[in-house]
Design a protein around this nucleic acid. Structure first.
Lengths: 186, 186
DNA sequence: TCGAGTGATGTCATTCAGTGACATCACTCA
DNA sequence: TGAGTGATGTCACTGAATGACATCACTCGA
């Protein structure tokens, strides 16, 4: 018999999601999460930097994929087209995760501390987009503006997808949002 | 003689800025800030919700002014024009505050926790813009997209202003940033 | 097969953020 | 002049987060 049950991090993630959804983020203690996962609070902090981070594991992976798509866009693509490619590439990440995304997003939206953390993840994405665009030869100021705008589109589209009663495809929603941006600034 | 020195909140703000700049946010305790301001830690928390908020007093005022400008834009103005008016209206708020803004921004940029807080302030601004646009009759989805885009412009322009070695006027920089957005999405 | 690591976890003590309850006391005003 | 009022202090407590050290199943080479 193994000394410890495997995948403590996974159990902690699930326990945290369940408790945050059940009784709210603020009224859940790390000790309770750890208990439910069968470990101690000290172990929680060995897997996650803080009480918020447990909901954001995997965001680096998403960011990595989106950045790759920006870099992989055709050379002829302008800055905004490259960013659009990055945004669209996020679609596959959410396949079959709509319900999970909805529950997770409900918890985050209800908790200022978690919203803060989500924003800094978006900022990290914007910085990564900026960097990728510069590598494509885009001027620094233009790169950051295009990146910020692209992230704004991603956020709005994601919100629309989560809220969509028709369960429309996320990629379609992203395309529509990008089109809205074009007509807005026309 | 008054029982207490007046303007405890002001002294706390200054003490916090000084200490955060001197030795960094994380290595400054609330007790130290309170000490320097001549009050107790308990009093600190009566004036500011938490250790981060002390750097963001006044942001509601800025938001209020920007929203007013959105609402005051000519009826003929489109969503993006109205948002642009809001962004430009922030200019006067920063008159004669460039050096203060630079020091403050340096502290914030160096501290993830403070960056998180700054982002949620920007989100609040975006929500307020969205609301204002809806009051102007803009469709909800378009309103939020225009608002997010406007906030992106504000952030980029503010960063440019703080970093500008020429000390250019903030309003000019904002106009230029708005122009960049137009050509980007053309 | 045995013994020296290794690594994930537990235990314990501590610092610090943040909050609730209650006391204090200069100042105000009827 | 005495009953509030309000900003502050004091105290006790919860809970997040971290460092130091112990534990022990498992691995791997001699």
């Amino acid at each position: 018999m193994a000394r410890w049950e495997p995948d403590a991090a996974g159990r902690l993630r699930e326990a945290a999601m369940a408790l945050y959804a059940e009784r709210g983020y603020e009224r859940t203690t790390v000790a309770e999460i750890a208990d439910r996962a069968g470990v101690t609070a000290r172990t929680f902090f060995r897997h996650f930097a803080d009480k918020r981070e447990v909901l954001f594991a995997g965001s680096e992976e998403l960011e990595r994929r989106m950045v790759e798509a920006v870099l992989a866009a055709p050379e002829s693509a302008g800055p905004m087209d490259a960013v659009a490619a990055g945004v669209l590439a996020s679609g596959e990440f959410f396949v079959d995760r709509r319900e999970h995304s909805r529950r997770r997003q409900a918890v985050i939206t209800a908790t200022p501390e978690l919203r803060e953390r989500e924003f800094i993840k978006m900022a990290s994405l914007a910085a990564a987009f900026t960097d990728a665009l510069r590598k494509r030869g885009v001027a620094p100021e233009i790169a950051s503006l295009a990146a910020e705008t692209g992230v704004a589109v991603f956020r709005v589209a994601f919100e629309r997808w989560v809220a969509d009663p028709q369960d429309a495809d996320i990629t379609d929603i992203m395309r529509a949002t990008l089109a809205d941006l074009s007509s807005l600034t026309a």
